[in-house]
Design a protein around this nucleic acid. Sequence first.
DNA 1: CTAGCACCCGTTTTT
DNA 2: CGGGTGCTAG
Length: 845
Amino acid sequence: MTEPSKLPPHGVPEHQPVAGGIAARARAAASPQYLHGLNPEQREAVETLDGPVLVLAGAGTGKTRVLTTRIAHILSQSRARPHEILSVTFTNKAAREMKLRLGQMLGQAVEGMPWLGTFHSIGGRILRIHAELVQLKSNFTVLDVDDQVRLLKQLLQAENIDDKRWPARMLAGLIDSWKNRGLSPSQVPSGEAASFGNGKGGKIYATYQERLKILNAADFGDLLLENIRLFRENPDVLRQYQNRFKFILVDEYQDTNVAQYLWLRLLSQAPSQPGLPLSAVIPGPIDDAAAKQAASAQPALAAPSAPLKNICCVGDDDQSIYGWRGAEVDNILRFDHDFPGAKVIRLERNYRSTGHILAAASHLIAHNEGRLGKTLRTEDVDGEKVTVTGSWDSEEEARAIGEELEELQRAGENLNDVAILVRASFQMREFEDRFVTLGLPYRVIGGPRFYERAEIRDALAYLRTINSPADDLAFERIVNVPKRGLGDATVQLLHDHARKRRIPLFEAARAVVDTDELKPKARGSLRDLVMQFDRWRAQREVVSHTELAEIVLDESGYTEMWQKDRSADAAGRLDNLKELVRSMEEFENLQGFLEHISLVMDRDGEAGDEAVSLMTLHSAKGLEFDNVFLPGWEEGLFPSQRTLDEQGRAGLEEERRLAHVGLTRARRRAKIYFATNRRIHGTWSTTIPSRFLDELPAHNVEITESKGGSGWGGSGGYGASRFDNLESFGSSYSTPGWQRAQANRGRGGGGRSGGGFEERQSSFSGSRSDGSSGGFNRSKRGPMVIEGELVAKSTGTVSEFSLEDRVFHQKFGYGHVVKIDGNKLTIAFEKAGEKKVVDSFVERV
DNA sequence: CTAGCACCCGTTTTT
DNA sequence: CGGGTGCTAG
């Protein structure tokens, strides 16, 4: 993975008062080296060690630097030893970067920071230490999504639930979201639990958890949820960690979900008195915001006798882009409620982008209402204006960007400092095609993670089966890979046996081989397999784990399977397998390797040659580039229609934050594109320029023509007037530009000007596929109190709808309510099937 | 049991 | 348009 950011100089601009006169030098001599070059706010964030601190760090304001320097400061002041600092990040990338920078700052002392890592890896580590307290063994397996779905499928079958109507994948998502909210099976609101599988959803969740224990396995969400349970049920264990962690640091706090919040909250309390009932300190049934309100109202927490730990959370509410995955912006917005007496420090000096880019980004994000509010500023030059370029279609868009890239290349720009950031990954293909024909080197960042590839999971399944004979899911995965003539029928038989005798699948296989229940062919094949595993397990004692892996892949015929495969990617898969074996060397033994693999193994490919980066906006967070291309700014795509439908205004604001993230990735040049026609799902459709374009400040933006294309209708007519009236922060739908865009689109880009709300509605209310414009009706808008709105969002205010209500939706037509989750309704439409919709988009009929 | 075919589906972001 | 899934025929 490339790290386009220039590590050391970043955040240390020349115009900061570094050296200077004698006085400055004297001051410098008095303060430690690592504090040099920090601006006053950064320095305050580093030096305020006691009590809760929230650092609101805007994009490019030196967030990571503050975090690492703070750790350095804690250590050098001898306030804590390395193993007494808990430092959590959201991603492995961030954890790695922190380790790297800490290493640079402190020498090689980073090895001594055992508690620096992601929420999941740290949660997993704690869980392994106390596994038996949550009915696991310390060598438990972390299940990947595939395993989860397979397991759930079995459970659904057992319950006789039609997996067409109720896909296992959907339940997996549901369970995951429950876990994100900190809900164990008994805590899931009954309405929600009943919403899946004819009321059996909650029950299956419970069964699923039971099965996980039998399999000695945990899924991703368990790494935190079971950790929370561990702490709640074992106050002495909790106290042990509360005592250990003298300082807690949290990165990207705006991305934390409820479970992570609760986990942090438990750890951040000063050790409770032995014997004090836990319920006095810990929110009871975790019921979303209700629990959080209870928690923040909890007097014990604020009381001086139970002081909060030295917790420092760093984040930026304007970069919260993971709401769909359970992240609660509330967490950061409510920080000073949750951590009374918290000190809030704003970092608003941006050291990354030039003036125009920053102004554009700031202006755009100012349209959000649910934010704490920061004003980014730079002392850098204005630089180039942000450009907005229209193209006829997505192909022309790709061509135009291709040309600009070549131009940059000719101008001597380093391609490593160029990125194309898209909203959705399907947009990438067009660029890839174009770059291939141009011979332009590029790399795709993101994609499927290394350990998610089929060949890696297969290989891991072999190793898991060796390591943990009770891991039925692993065994089942590879029992017939490569093909051994052991198909569904055989597996079914094994299952029956296993269930009857309450033994793992593998042991069932061993037993079945001695009977004549299987046909001779399958029986022999299965016997061989069992014997092979016995042999491998024995070899484990004598050969190294890397050798063992090679032996297994070889003897099982797995490598051979791919060698014989004629498909194009077979060679790549073999490479991946080699890479897997190589990566095992870093670990002590098989056990250690398996513990880490699913959590820490990242995407492959360490950079290499100069190339343009192609990635989604989401995966661009935290990165920066000199030149950033932002294609696809069209209604429906960006902001994404689906997000609008499902999340309403909150969704729109999250999309806007995404736009803000995109713009603030750019150091010197940001170039936005939109196409008038785009192919979605195979068919061409005409699109409207994104409303976000209307929200950019005219002064910082330059509108350009797409080069080398037939152009798109009404070039001049569109023009600068689109950016009129940007002072109004009201509904973007009411800006003239927006309305004109609508009107233009309706007329196919003709030259007539004017047009307004009514006309727009009449010209294509039928074809406009969102209903969001209707959803934002006046009565629902108007100034919203941040807290009121956000609390409403997660508390699950009672909807004015009730189950079975017959409703009408502009796009989907008639249907009835089958599920209510706050203001989000699940509606079974008569024509369109089941959809999730915000209640304001439908009316009762 | 496997391999090949048809149909169907669903199309965002991921630790 | 492409991928994945389920089905059927061998």
